Amino acid sequence: MSSPKQVIVIGAGIIGASIAWHLTKAGARVTVVSTSGAGGVATPNSFAWINASWGNPETYFHLRVRAMAEWTRLAKDLPGLPLAWCGGLCWDLPADRLEAYAAEHSSWGYGIERVGREQAARIEPNLAELPDSALYVAEEGVAEPVATARTLLTDADRRGARIIAGTVGALALSGSKVTGVVISGETITADGVVIAAGTGAPAIAGTAGIKLPIEAPPGLIVHSRPYKKLLNGLVLAERLHMRQTAEGRIIAGSDFGGGDPGENPEATARELFATMKAMLRGVDGLEFDFHTVGYRPTPIDGFPIVSRAEGVGGLYLAVTHSGITLAPAIGLFAAREILDGERDALLAPYALSRFAQ
């Protein structure tokens, strides 16, 4: 009987945590290496919207829908997962584009409902400004990002994973094969290495001669102090997107990825918070707490990179924006490919090799 495969996962954000959990559950001996602890760098600054919305090509839409289904599966395996299917109310597009999006995604099977002002008021009664028409998707949701990553890593640890703090300075190589990672001059060996380090991924991959075409646009999100329940779900309005977290904070950005922080992020945050308050009723006691500026690891064509690194054995790459939506599917598919060589058809368009063509 062969011994379990040893895999190092670099990164403890939502993608790294999901891959580590799925690998451990499948029987691998996993070591997670993280500089910043559970949640990583980008994950704590995420709006955390789980969806298959917006202008997606159909192939990407199907990956996102599958990921939404995998969230339901994952919640059954981890009953304490902070996941809520709260629904999303959207009117953040001109009327013609909103209708085109609704028609297209409805034809693909997405559960979009067209609602008027009265229905919108029933869905979100504390909105001070209501649209004449909007779209509502009841099956959209949120996963509180840091708590979710921590839950995955805690259970991976319970199943035998090792989680260590450290900064990977380089990948260890033997010829054209990755054999481990170098941390503070010490090499930790493994049968395979997964880079799921978000914006830190290009520098690590570069030590093996791999170029990752990644951008890292900043996104500012404001956070209120915890407050009484005002919002039932996601609100995607013309001027900002907002939701209320499990602990009662209302978080908002000029879009779900966060907006441009500008030259003075604090002033931008205060202006955004004022806009948010103006859109809500019952906010007399609602107070600004802090803002975050997250840097989203975004491949230059906007779509995930989830694949082996061609020409470099033992190395797997998993870098994407929309990490919250895609995390459970990427974790499942990556574990299968790493351990069994089985690549899911839904990942076919998202190999790194597409950038060489």
Rank of each mutant, 00 (worst) to 15 (best):
T245Q: 08
G253D: 09
V222S: 06
E247W: 03
S254A: 10
L240R: 08
Q244M: 06
N264K: 14
Y227Q: 14
V235E: 10
A278S: 12
I221H: 09
N264R: 11
S224G: 04
R243W: 04
F288L: 14
S224R: 07
L234Q: 06
K277S: 15
R243N: 08
A237H: 00
D255I: 02
G219E: 07
M276P: 01
V222W: 01
N232E: 13
M276I: 02
R239I: 01
E263P: 03
D284G: 01
H241M: 08
S254F: 00
P217N: 12
T245F: 00
N232V: 02
A246H: 11
T245R: 11
K277A: 12
S224D: 06
S254N: 04
G258S: 05
K277C: 14
G262M: 11
P226D: 13
L234D: 03
K277D: 11
Y227I: 04
V283P: 09
P265Y: 12
T268H: 11
T275S: 10
M242C: 07
L240P: 00
G285Y: 00
D260A: 01
G282D: 15
E263H: 13
A252K: 05
I250P: 04
I250K: 08
T245D: 12
M279V: 04
G259S: 12
R270F: 05
F256C: 13
G259C: 10
G285K: 12
M242R: 05
I251Q: 05
I250V: 14
L234E: 07
G257N: 08
N232R: 13
A246P: 01
V235T: 02
L280I: 04
P217K: 12
E287K: 06
F288G: 10
G219V: 11
L236S: 13
K277T: 10
H223E: 07
A237N: 12
N264E: 15
T275Y: 02
G233A: 08
R249S: 06
S254T: 15
L231C: 02
D284F: 06
A252G: 05
L234R: 01
E266Y: 02
R249W: 00
N232A: 04
E287P: 00
A269L: 04
I221W: 03
L280N: 05
G248M: 09
G285H: 09
T245A: 07
G219P: 01
L272F: 02
L236T: 14
R249C: 06
D289T: 06
A252W: 00
A269D: 10
Y227V: 07
K228G: 12
E247C: 02
F256R: 14
P261D: 15
G285N: 15
D260E: 12
L231T: 08
G258C: 05
I251S: 08
A237Y: 03
D260N: 15
V283H: 11
R243I: 02
G257A: 12
D260Y: 05
Q244V: 07
G233P: 01
S224Y: 02
T268P: 06
A269R: 10
G248V: 10
Y227S: 15
P265T: 15
G219C: 05
L231G: 04
D255G: 11
R243C: 01
R239T: 13
N232M: 02
K228A: 07
L286G: 05
I250N: 00
H223C: 09
R239Q: 11
S254M: 03
V283L: 14
V235M: 03
G259R: 13
T275H: 02
I251R: 12
V222Q: 07
F288M: 11
P226R: 10
G253I: 08
L272Q: 15
A269M: 05
